[in-house]
Amino acid sequence: MKDRIIEMLEAIHPGIDYETTGSLIDDRILDSFDVVSLVGDLMDEFDVEIGADLMVPENFNSVDDIVALIEGLEG
């Protein structure tokens, strides 16, 4: 899952070391346009529904945060 998410992020915003970066939102590496695009891709890829209540920086600051978000929704 992690590798697939990194691929998606690369497609939206290339040139970032997503493995190590832990402040994608706080450092404004991803803007709101990127996050909404990513949410669409994640919903399709993992067949989950990401509600408006989950649109908080803590869920998108790192790849691990995104993985945890998807796993939480799948569980």
Binding site: V36, V39, I50, A52, D53, M55
Partner: peptide, 9 residues
């Protein structure tokens, strides 16, 4: 929280 995000997602 109740208009912007619900529309975008």
């Amino acid at each position: 929280d109740y208009i912007f995000y619900p529309i975008t997602v």
